Computed example of a mutant assay.
Amino acid sequence: MSDNDFQSIFDSDEDGLLDTPEKAPKLTSADRLERSFLEIVEFYREHERPPRSDTREIAERKLGARLEGILASDDKSAGLKHLDEFGLLVEPEAPASLDDLLEGDDLGLLDDDSGLLDTSDLPQRKSPEASADAAQRVRAEDFEQFEPLFQQQHAELANGASKLVAFPGMQHIVEGAFFVLNGVMLFIADVGETEYKTTTVRVNRRERLRVIFENGTESSMYRQSLGIRMGEGHGQAVVPAEFESVLADDVATGYVYVLRSLSDDPLIQEVPDLHKIGFSRGPVEKRVAHAERQPTYLMAPVEVVASYRTYNLKTSALEHLLHRVFSDKRLRVSQVGKDGRVYEPSEWYSVPLRVIDQAIELITSGDIVDYEYDTEARELRLR
């Protein structure tokens, strides 16, 4: 075949099928750095926060470690400024206080898992002034509502129903939790709405607590502030004795409780094995303190016959499953509230306590899907 024949073939290749593909330009170290940083930018765009390096999510942990490496290098940070649309590389303003410092630690760089920041063994500087922590406390006007809860916790510690464990971490500071700090028991009565504090770098979130102390005082410190004080003061958490340890991933989610009505209404008294199954994020005794004023409790005092503390579990889902299992035995009654409105309490069931106990065990194990409640035999049986 002549050269002219070859040329005619190339000339007739209108679609460019015979064109030699161009080689992709070789990536430089600067190109790779930009690509890796853009992945971090995309993470922030999707989650509205920087990635963390201490999470169990492998992909996020990788991005968090990468961001820490970039922040540690002035050269890398300078070379990526043109891509930093969210201010991830901007040097933050100096914090005005310890609380501001802790609240702005989005990457968890100040977490002290090793104990290197524990200064409890160092000599304490004496000051004639009251401590900042004590100065923030005020007398709890409604302490009489909480005093029985402290008495109950001390009784359970004494009889072995509860025990003290080392402070397991910030995530355990939730409504209804008990802790001991510097020898004083405290109770998390309330966790406020999340507040968002905007800085020049990012938006930080924080929650203010209502902390009740057994000496009759209370404080409205932030969750981060209490966490650092618990760490510095060798704080302890009060947990049920059956839990050998409370791990970092074990989060108390609330209580499922069972109540018996103490109503003197003959129509209520004649219902056999009448129990209310409910859910509370805090201690049950506080939840039912004024039962006689509330239609949901049949406008009468109640007796707590059982409560189940749940960990790592969406307690409201457990409650919903119990209601579904026993739906055929739900009490159908109307109550008139103090406001004159008519209410229909929906969580009272004519079911023996032993069957409720069994149902909760089956839900926890995941086997409840194979069972149903036999209303005639008053037993749970396989479907």
Rank of each mutant, 00 (worst) to 15 (best):
Q7M: 09
S12I: 01
A30K: 14
D31Y: 06
E48R: 15
D54N: 12
A59K: 12
E60A: 11
G64N: 10
L67M: 13
D75N: 03
L89V: 03
L89N: 02
L98N: 08
E103K: 13
L109T: 09
T119P: 00
R137K: 10
V138R: 11
D142F: 10
F146R: 00
E156V: 00
E175N: 07
A189L: 04
E193T: 05
E195G: 12
T199G: 15
T200L: 14
T200R: 14
V201F: 03
V201W: 06
R202Y: 13
L209V: 12
V211L: 15
G216Y: 04
S220V: 05
L226D: 06
M230E: 10
V239C: 07
P240M: 10
E242C: 03
E244T: 11
V246W: 07
A252F: 15
S261K: 07
S263E: 14
P266Y: 02
F279W: 13
Y297E: 01
L298R: 10
E303P: 06
Y308E: 03
L322C: 14
S327C: 11
D328C: 02
R330G: 01
S346Q: 14
E347I: 05
W348R: 05
V351H: 01
V351G: 02
R354M: 09
I356Y: 04
I356M: 07
G366Y: 09
Y371L: 03
T375I: 15
R378V: 00
E379V: 05
R383W: 09
